[in-house]
Nucleic acid binder design. Structure first.
Lengths: 229, 229
DNA sequence: CGGTTCGTTGAGGCCCATCAATCTATGTGG
DNA sequence: CCACATAGATTGATGGGCCTCAACGAACCG
């Protein structure tokens, strides 16, 4: 089972085990469940073990932005470790399973094991790079490139084999995609049509197919280095 | 002298001193100097002690995005601590002074002092929240709100007194502002004109004046909580 | 079978980019 | 000290990418 936190390179074998055992058992959650409201606190880190979730922010007018999509193995609210409140909400986007790591326990472990403290840093810095690349997308890329780039990123994060053609489960609605890309669902639809008609994607039922990953990456100017992989 | 890293709440007094003494002396740098190229490595953390700098990414077509403006006290390339290469460039935007903290020394200190390791985490997570809020701006806010929000953020980060009217040094060109907001310099100019004609800003020579901070914040939907202050 | 969510498509309009010109400020060399 | 070059600010005209509004179809579900 993939776990982004446990895969930090700065963890020793012992530390990895200790940290792994501190994480509670996964619990099933419905789609569309608000795990955390924007600005709330809480006393446990949430780890998505199955399905999809996201962090999101909302303007007063009600439009939503998803800075981070969360897939199996991702930590939802890492910031909570060192901040009392967290400025984003966490919501499931599909049926999912979520495990908890008590904040106090995480802090204690970080104090005892330097490698665990570094693992938290590592994860935070990795998210940092991803968010910087997102800023480039949102600020400077066309809608088409933005979507293409997101799909390239997800194919890597979901561990798809690096072959000519790639496919992975993809349960998001076009509205949710739009919220991740700063677009409306209507425009996401048109952009997907364009990518499909150019054989860069071939979505089926809840499954995304990238028939020619190399070309899609070239088109999106995707460079996987920023994912820390 | 403000220092973002040393102001982490998880540092003990001793740790703060130890970390402070590990940082080298500030060295003067010209405006527009490339301290680090996109994708480069390096063996020292850079800390801006005076003037302005930025992290930036560039598309193949050459358009630039600045995810983070760096002012006095900010760490430029924190990610370097745990990653071999860093996916953004660092450039000064004005005449500046920059101090260095050797990477190996920083890692060693983090290993000996849990509080120092947590301070790195703290800073990374704080940047994380700022980047998430940036994503909301870039994805969902109008150009005018984006600029207003940036100015509100800078007034807080530069430590301006929280009075009815606020002013702070502001040496950026309109092109650099555009790169931070995902806009062209031409449009930045028009947006500034609009804000000026509505008495929300009153820029003088290299100095930004916010005559009515409360109203500007309301307009920008600015909530300083995300800055971890 | 009716209701709801999501995908799809069209028409029209606005925000912001693009291209281009002018103006000012700053500095530089003769 | 002036002529000139350069960078940045300002303004106009035009166009396009994406939003908004609206309608309809398709899939799913109780």
């Amino acid at each position: 089972m993939r776990n982004r936190l446990l895969s930090a390179p700065c963890l020793s074998g012992v530390e990895r085990d200790v940290l792994g055992e501190a994480i509670g058992p996964p619990k099933p959650v419905k789609a569309g469940a608000d795990l955390k409201r924007q600005g709330e606190g809480g006393d446990e880190l949430l780890i998505v073990t199955e399905g999809w979730a996201c962090r999101h922010l909302v303007t007063r007018a009600g439009s939503r932005q998803i800075p981070t999509l969360l897939v199996a193995g991702d930590v939802a609210n890492l910031d909570l470790l060192l901040f009392d409140r967290v400025e984003y909400g966490v919501t499931t986007l599909s049926k999912a399973s979520v495990a908890a790591l008590p904040k106090s326990l995480a802090v204690a472990l970080a104090g005892e094991h330097p490698g665990i403290a570094l693992a938290f840093s590592w994860l935070a810095m990795a998210e940092n790079m991803a968010l910087s690349v997102l800023a480039l997308s949102l600020g400077r890329r066309s809608a088409t490139q933005r979507l293409a780039h997101l799909l390239c990123e997800l194919s890597v994060r979901l561990g798809a084999k690096d072959e000519h053609s790639v496919s992975f489960p993809f349960p998001l609605t076009q509205e949710q995609i739009g919220d991740a890309l700063g677009l409306t669902s209507v425009h996401v639809n048109r952009v997907m049509r364009w990518l499909r008609s150019n054989n860069l994607i071939a979505s089926a039922d809840r499954v995304m197919v990238l028939p020619n990953v190399a070309e899609l990456r070239r088109f999106a100017e995707f460079d996987r280095h920023y994912l820390g992989v």
